[in-house]
Design a protein around this nucleic acid. Structure first.
Lengths: 240, 240
DNA sequence: ACAAAAGTGTTTTAGATACACCCATGC
DNA sequence: GCATGGGTGTATCTAAAACACTTTTGT
C-alpha cells in the first residue's frame, strides 16, 4: 500500500467575490482589498496589489463559515449570503512573481500550494460600508467594466463569477436585498439589466415579472419626482 | 499581523462520481469501489465499505489532473471527461465512526480534516471496464435507484451529482460518447429519459432534437430486428 | 407648456404539449 | 398474419418579442 499521502498537505483558502449593485449609476461593482504594505525596511520593492478578499481557512469551521469569517475580518462585512461557486487549485496559481513579496511576508511557507474555494455574494452597495481589517490596507469598489490586474489568479476567479450571474440573474435577485424595501418597477428592471448586461423592453419586462409573482404592489407612490410618480412594490417573503 | 496560517494545512482530495449509462436496462449506474480489507490481524473489526473513487491530490498536478489520476489508479479508467461540480469541506466530513478504521490504516493522521473537490463523469457502461487498483478491492456498478450506505459523506456527494444531471441532461449528452457511434432516435430518447427521470413523448422529442441540429442522419438502417428497422444517426462534431 | 419617466395592449412568432394511426420487418 | 417497435402531423397553448402612445407630476 502506498503511503504518499503522509505529508502531502496543502493550504486551503476561501476567496469572496462580493458584487455591489450601485443603483444610482446602475452598475455592478466588485469589492477589492488593497494589500497592506508591510514594513518597507524589511521587504524591498514590495508592491501592494488589489485582490479579492480571501484568506486561509481555520481548523474547526466549515467552508461556508470560513468565507463569512474571512470576509468579515478583511472588510467587516457581516451577515451576507455567500455561495460557493468553484474551486481553483492549479499548482502555480499563487506562484507568479507579482505575488512573491506578499507571500514572503504573510506565509510561513511562501512556496506552498494554495487551493481556494471561491464564493459569490451580491449586495446593495449603499447598504454596507466595508472597513478594511487584517492585512487589508483599504477596500475599494471597482466597476466590473474596469477591473485592474489583481493578485494571484483573482482575475480568473472574478471572471468566472461574472459569467455565473450573467447566466442566471433571476436566481441572484430574490431575497438578497439588492433594492430598498420599497422599489419601483423601473428600479427592478435596471437591476436585471445591470446583472444580465442586456437591455430589456419595459412592457415585456413588466409582463414577465407579473407572471412570476414575486411582487406585492403597495399603496404608495413616489413623491417629489418631476414626472409621473411610480408605484412602489416589495418582494414577497420567500415561499419556503 | 496575525500568523495563524502558519501550520494550518489540510488534506485535499478529489472524489469522482462516474455515472455509467446502461443502454440495455436503460438506467444510470454509479461506479463504486469496495475498500480493501487491510490485514485483519492488525485492525480488528474492520468493515470494508463502498465508496466513490477518490484520494488525496499530489503535489504537482492540477485538480483536474488529480481527478483523472486518482480515478485511473483505483479503477484503471482512463481518458474520460471529468467535470468539477462542488467542494465538500465540513470539518467532520470524514470523522464518522464508520470511517475510523479505514482512516487509521490509510492516513498518517487519521483525525485530520480532508477537503474534497468532487468531479462528475458520464460514460457508456459497456465502453469501459473498471479494474480495481490501489486500495480498491473491487469495483461495482450500482443503480442510482439503489445506493448503499457509502463511506464518508459520499452519499451526499453523489446526491448533489444526480441533482446536477437531472437539471441539465442535454449538457451532459453531447460529445460524451454515451451511445454507440451510430444510434437510433429511440436510443437517444431513452438516454434523455434515464438522465432526466422523465417520460418523453416520441413525436415531440424528435421534433425538438431536430430543431437543435445535433444530428447527422445516416444512410443506414437496423438489420435483423423483428420490427420496422430504424434509421441510424450520429452526432455532429462539436462546432468549436 | 414642457420635460421626464410611468404606465399600458396588441400582434406576431416560436416553442412546448397533447394526441393516434400506419409502416416495415422477422417469424 | 401477427407481434414489435419505427415513424409521422396537426391542433392548441404558452411564452417571448416587437412595437408607440398617453398619463402624471414639478417647474
Amino acid at each position: 500500500m502506498k503511503n504518499k499521502q503522509s505529508y502531502l498537505q496543502n493550504y486551503v483558502s476561501v476567496d469572496c467575490v462580493v458584487l455591489g449593485y450601485d443603483e444610482v449609476e446602475n452598475r455592478l461593482q466588485v469589492l477589492l482589498i488593497k494589500q497592506k504594505d508591510p514594513d518597507k525596511q524589511n521587504v524591498d520593492s514590495y508592491k501592494s496589489q488589489y485582490a479579492l478578499p480571501g484568506d486561509l481557512i481555520n481548523e474547526n469551521e466549515s467552508l461556508d463559515e470560513a468565507a463569512s469569517r474571512v470576509l468579515n475580518e478583511l472588510t467587516h462585512i457581516k451577515g451576507i449570503y455567500l455561495q460557493q461557486f468553484y474551486t481553483f487549485g492549479h499548482p502555480d496559481r499563487v506562484s507568479a512573481p507579482k505575488d512573491a513579496d506578499w507571500l514572503r511576508v504573510h506565509r510561513k511557507d511562501p512556496n506552498a500550494r494554495v487551493i481556494t474555494i471561491a464564493y459569490l455574494a451580491l449586495v446593495r452597495i449603499d447598504h454596507i460600508t466595508p472597513l478594511a481589517g487584517s492585512f487589508a490596507e483599504n477596500t475599494i469598489w471597482r466597476s466590473i467594466k474596469k477591473i485592474p490586474k489583481l493578485a494571484f489568479d483573482h482575475n480568473q476567479i472574478l471572471g468566472k463569477a461574472l459569467e455565473i450571474i450573467k447566466e442566471h440573474p433571476e436566481q441572484h435577485i430574490m431575497g438578497r436585498e439588492l433594492l430598498p424595501p420599497k422599489f419601483t418597477l423601473s428600479q427592478l428592471q435596471n437591476l436585471y439589466e445591470a446583472m444580465s448586461g442586456l437591455q430589456l423592453d419595459k412592457r415585456n419586462f413588466r409582463k414577465s415579472i407579473k407572471t412570476a409573482d414575486y411582487l406585492i404592489p403597495l399603496d404608495e407612490k413616489q413623491k417629489g419626482v418631476l414626472h409621473k410618480p411610480a408605484q412602489y412594490f416589495s418582494f414577497k417573503k420567500s415561499k419556503k
